[in-house]
Structures are given as C-alpha cells and as structure tokens.
C-alpha cells in the first residue's frame, strides 16, 4: 500500500544557518497514529511545518497522499489539517465564524451540519457564539483542533497536543484521536513524553538533533525504552561481582561502591525479589537503594550508540 505521507531526503537549513533537519526519510501508513517523539529543538515542528507548507524545504521531496507538496500543493494541502503547537487564533472572532473561515479557506462549500458535529464532539457547541478571547486555554486548543477538522482532512497533524492541557482534557483528546482514527483519519502527533507515545501511537519515530533516530512499532520500542534501574549503595565496596550472582544483569560501578541492576518494567518477572534474596544470602549489605527510569536523553544516547 502506498504510504499516505512519504518524506524523502528532506533537509532544512534556516536562514540563520541552523540545520534543523538532516536527511529525513519517513513513511507514514494510512490510518495509523504516528508519534514523533523528541526533545526540545529536535526538529519536530520544522518537519511538520514543511509537510503543511508553512516552511520551505531546503532539499528533498514530500508526498502527501501521493501529491507533491510543492508542485501539487492544492491537492496535497486539501487532505491535511494542522493543529499548531502555539495557541494562535483570531481572538476577536467567534468560534463559529472562525470555523467557517477555516472551512472556506480549504476550499470546501459551507456545511453547517458537519461544523456542528465537530463542535459538539469537542464540547464547543455551547460556546459557538463566544468570542475566542473569552475562552480558557484548554478550550482554545479545542477550537484549534476543530478548525483543523473543519475541512474533513484525511491526515491530521497535532503538534504537542498535550502542552498546557489538564489530565481530563488530555484523556478526552486521546479519546477523540482514537475516534478519528476509526473514521480513517491518519494522525501524526509530536510529543516529549514517552508515556504519551506509548498510550496513543501505533508506531513511534524518534527524532533528535534533526535526525530520525529510529522508527518502530510501539511494542518493540517500548521494550527498548521500558528499562528501569536500581542502584544499590553498598556498605562495603566489592572487588567484583560474585560468580553466583552472574545470572542477574548486574553491573558494578568502577569504584566498587555501587551495584546497578537493570530490569524491564513491562515483564511480569522483574527479578527484584530474587536479587535481593541472593544479595542477602551472600551477605552483601547496602545502605540505600534508588530506582530511576532512563531519561529521554539517555534513551536517545543509547539508541544512537546501539545503532552504530
């Protein structure tokens, strides 16, 4: 099946000389939820902006539903809806007016029933005549989502949909995204949070410093990402890990004062109980114990080094 979005050898260097994207190759499948995961400044917004026509690519090609985004921009853009990262709306307009504006802009004839449905789905119908300036931040974000859906796009981009959104609204939004997917809309969202990617996506692409580090099915990726560490501060430092403990994935710090145990949070058997039992059998006492999850940055580093 032809990918709904296909990015080939895409490069972007801003006028300032900053290289925001280098040699991006990416394919999005029709009907999937794709999460673009990366830290601040990774290039997520830049990539989305190029696909949507807001930023000019320096090099490379992008096809949306088979249409080149530059030479055949009309066909390409009609298929795409974008919810931007920043809350940018015409604050003096009413919700319904801004919806009609968006639909018109994308070349669709008026369809009050459809607009009403979108607004109802996003619990905005009661606010349809309210000026946007009078809405709360969460409502404004929903207005932006409604605007992006106003022209019935096949592809929806959500740039950091959960920024500045409370838990409840986030849940509603995820719910809505799933419903859209059921209707056959392809969704690409960006996020800083592994949990969000995990909760939502079918596939995850990791981007860092303008490069796609990897693209994988969520399940596989989560296996790689779902690692946790226990650090045991030892009472007496060790020369080496005793032979009998070698079946545990243990590492001794270079000064011998710390044992580091890495385990998978997802497996039923984390092995912690057995480890602690074995340690006490060997008379290895510890003063303190910390657990921590790998940070996004560490994960990127580990992914990059693994690849090499």
């Amino acid at each position: 099946m032809q990918p709904i979005i296909s990015v080939q050898n895409l490069n972007k260097t801003y006028a300032s000389g900053l290289k925001a994207l280098s040699n991006i190759n990416l394919e999005i499948h029709e009907g999937e939820i794709f999460a673009l995961l990366g830290p601040n400044g990774a290039g997520k917004t830049t990539l989305i902006s190029i696909i949507c026509g807001i930023v000019n690519p320096t090099e490379g090609t992008v096809l949306a539903d088979g249409h080149d985004i530059l030479s055949d921009y009309r066909a390409a853009r009609t298929k795409i809806g974008l919810v931007p990262q920043e809350l940018t709306t015409d604050v003096f307009e009413s919700v319904i007016a801004t919806m009609n504006f968006s639909r018109g802009l994308f070349g669709k004839p008026p369809n009050p029933d459809y607009i009403e449905k979108v607004l109802r789905d996003l619990s905005l119908w009661e606010k349809k005549d309210a000026k946007i300036i009078t809405l709360s931040g969460g409502m404004k974000r929903r207005v932006l989502i409604a605007k992006a859906l106003s022209h019935e796009p096949k592809i929806l981009f959500l740039d950091e949909p959960s920024a500045g959104v409370d838990v409840e609204l986030r849940r509603d939004m995820w719910e809505m995204v799933r419903k859209l997917r059921e209707d056959g809309v392809t969704i690409i969202l960006t996020t800083h949070y592994i949990e969000e990617a995990e909760e939502m996506a079918d596939r995850v692409g990791v981007i860092n410093h303008g490069e796609i580090v990897l693209v994988e099915e969520k399940a596989q990726l989560m296996q790689k990402l779902g690692k946790k560490q226990i650090r045991l501060e030892l009472l007496h430092s060790l020369e080496a890990i005793p032979e009998t403990l070698s079946k545990h994935p243990l590492r001794l710090s270079s000064d011998g004062k710390e044992l580091v145990y890495t385990y998978d949070t997802r497996s039923d058997e984390t092995g912690i109980t057995v480890l602690l039992k074995n340690l006490s059998e060997h008379g290895i006492d510890f003063r303190d114990l910390h657990t921590r999850e790998s940070t996004l940055e560490e994960i990127f580093v580990s992914l990059v080094t693994k690849k090499k």
Partner: peptide, 17 residues
C-alpha cells in the same frame, strides 16, 4: 496582524494560491 499573531500559518497551510 496575522503575521504578528501567528494565525498566518493557516493561510499558508491552506490550498490557496
């Protein structure tokens, strides 16, 4: 104004010449 407020993104991303 749309350039200043950022709402120009919508016009730029729309299928308009």
């Amino acid at each position: 104004l749309p350039k200043f407020s950022g709402t120009i993104f919508e016009v730029l991303s729309a299928p308009v010449s």
